[in-house]
């Protein structure tokens, strides 16, 4: 209860601050919350941007595909790197070096290669989401206590049994945390991709409002996007809780 109160207090303080600063500065560039509310209402009633539902849907679909690919490829790469010593020592360091490069430098070439439509956003979301998943698998495999593998083998577990009953539960927390980070980064990748260059999707709408200095609409769009991001993270944290329960049952 006190946590909620503290949270609310900070929010109210920020809103008040925003209102004061917003009213004091250039109305073209900054909007106080009191001006955002009507813009948000217009946005949600589809008055300012009638293609909002289509844009939200497109962005969500891009996120889903980008994240799906990131999970599948990330898991496959992670296990290949973790289980095969040659692959691991040959490509592991390369992967880590690649991860250190700010991913946004790849985006122009992705646009050149995949075009301005969904494909380049998916590719960028995938690129961002893929690394945390792969690295979480690698970290998870290192976390598995080899003695437990020996115990499982002594009690008759084959490779599949060791994988399912020892590896997966032992690495579950790390793995799920990586999957969650991967989702957050895939979402960022898709939206940043849209903002950097696209004709449709939430990022395109944001770009449009921002470019025309429709600042109140811009802020309203950002708020809607924020809802998407927070929503996806809530889903991810629910999944994390489920995984924890499963591993302890």
């Amino acid at each position: 209860m006190r946590v909620v109160a503290a949270r609310g207090a900070l929010l109210v303080a920020l809103l008040v601050l925003w209102e004061i600063v917003g009213r004091a500065s250039n109305p073209l560039l900054s909007v106080p919350p009191s001006a955002v509310l009507p813009a948000l209402r217009d946005l949600l009633l589809l008055r300012s941007y009638p293609d909002l539902p289509a844009s939200v849907l497109l962005t969500l679909r891009e996120i889903a595909v980008a994240y799906g690919l990131a999970v599948v490829v990330g898991l496959a790469c992670g296990f290949a790197l973790g289980f095969n010593r040659l692959i691991g020592s040959a490509y592991g360091p390369m992967l880590a070096a690649l991860y250190a490069v700010p991913a946004v430098v790849w985006y122009p070439s992705l646009m050149l290669f995949f075009g301005l439509d969904a494909a380049s956003k998916i590719a960028f979301g995938f690129l961002l989401g893929f690394f945390p998943v792969t690295l979480a698998v690698l970290a998870g495999i290192r976390q598995v206590n080899p003695h437990l593998v020996t115990v499982a083998r002594a009690y008759g577990a084959g490779p599949l049994g060791v994988f399912g009953r020892v590896m997966v539960p032992a690495m579950l927390f790390t793995l799920v945390a990586g999957l969650r980070t991967g989702l957050a980064l895939a979402v960022i990748g898709v939206i940043v991709g849209e903002i950097l260059g696209s004709k449709r999707g939430m990022g395109a709408l944001i770009n449009h409002a921002y470019g025309l200095l429709r600042t109140a609409d811009y802020v309203a769009l950002v708020l809607v996007t924020l809802m998407l991001v927070v929503g996806s993270d809530v889903v991810a944290s629910l999944a994390e809780r489920r995984a924890r329960k499963w591993s302890e049952s």
């Binding site: 003695h147 437990l148 009690y155």
Partner: peptide, 12 residues
Amino acid sequence: ATVFQDPGLFPW
């Protein structure tokens, strides 16, 4: 059946 020095219980 084997019992090891480190009990090797599955913590989960």
